[in-house]
């Protein structure tokens, strides 16, 4: 029983990391139908921000807390720059955006290699996060994973509230539901797009801070995890967040369970097959916005 509980929690924490990354993607993909392959490099930027801050602020706990808003701002600014320079010119060509942002991600990786060196670097986690909380007999949970789970829940709550109650959120929802109608109603869609991109990319930066607690920081850290996050968005359905939230945790737990029963490599394949099978049932993802478009 404890084994299963332990695996379930592993799954939840895999899902939490996935969700933190997928939140930003769900936002930008949902609103602009844009695949941003450089999202993974914004994660990397957030992680390196944590590393740099820790060089100046030696207290691990304080530097982590400072890193959260700073990484949000750094990654968000990079996102705005990318949107302004390239993506806004390519809104009608989603597949080309994918390739262009892949090119950007290659260059950012090389930039990181030139600045920080090719080998991975490490940050020091605050003591309280390196310990574990024990739950019952022989089940204990790493505090860093609990911290990430809390961070994700906070991010989801904040984002949901922002989308629901703020004027900006209202505009974002309007643009997602019907871009043309929003534009003729006087919503500055281009500016809303840019702000969405800022928030979405900023969330990637926060995810990068969280990832420093789990492993080393390297130039290619974003590449592998980004695909799983994209799958979360595809399966969850675009245009809203709840699909991504559910799917991230379900996929995380599925991955953990299958991995426990077989091996990591087989689990990846089985999860992929499960996703293709799921798309047979709901090709538009778990939840979709009702639209009148033919697609």
């Amino acid at each position: 029983m404890t084994v299963i509980l332990g695996q379930l929690f592993t799954g939840v924490s895999i899902g939490a990391v996935l969700l933190l990354i997928a939140l930003g993607l769900a936002l930008t993909f949902g609103q602009m139908n844009v695949i941003n392959m450089a999202h993974g490099e914004f994660i990397m930027a957030g992680a390196y921000t944590t590393y740099v801050l820790q060089q100046t602020i030696t207290d691990a706990g304080l530097s982590l807390l400072v890193a959260l808003p700073v990484a949000f701002a750094v990654a968000g600014a990079m996102g705005v720059l990318l949107e302004w320079a390239l993506i806004r010119r390519l809104y009608t060509r989603p597949l080309d955006t994918l390739l262009v942002t892949w090119g950007v991600s290659l260059m950012l990786q090389q930039l990181a290699r030139d600045i920080f060196g090719a080998p991975n670097v490490q940050t020091k986690a605050p003591d309280i996060l390196t310990e574990s909380t024990s739950l019952g007999a022989d089940l204990s949970i790493a505090n860093s994973r609990l911290f990430i789970l809390g961070l994700v829940l906070l991010a989801v709550a904040a984002l949901t509230a922002a989308l629901k109650f703020t004027p900006l959120g209202r505009r974002i929802r309007a643009v997602v539901q019907n871009r043309d109608l929003a534009a003729v109603s006087g919503i500055p869609t281009a500016r809303v797009d840019r702000l969405t991109f800022f928030i979405g990319s900023g969330l990637a930066g926060v995810a990068g801070v969280a990832l420093t607690l789990l492993g080393p920081i390297g130039p290619t850290m974003g590449t592998n995890i980004i695909i799983d996050a994209f799958l979360v968005v595809v399966v969850g359905g675009i245009g809203q967040l709840k699909g991504s939230v559910i799917v991230a945790f379900v996929l995380g737990m599925l991955q953990a369970m299958v991995e426990y029963l077989t091996t990591l490599s087989v689990a990846k394949v089985i999860v992929f097959i499960a996703i293709v099978a799921f798309l047979q049932w709901r090709p538009q993802g778990l939840f979709t916005l009702r639209t009148r478009s033919l697609a």
Binding site: L99, V100, W102, G103, V104, L106, M107
Partner: peptide, 9 residues
Amino acid sequence: TYLQGAMFV
């Protein structure tokens, strides 16, 4: 790597 990225873009 820079060149390859720039080519994509």
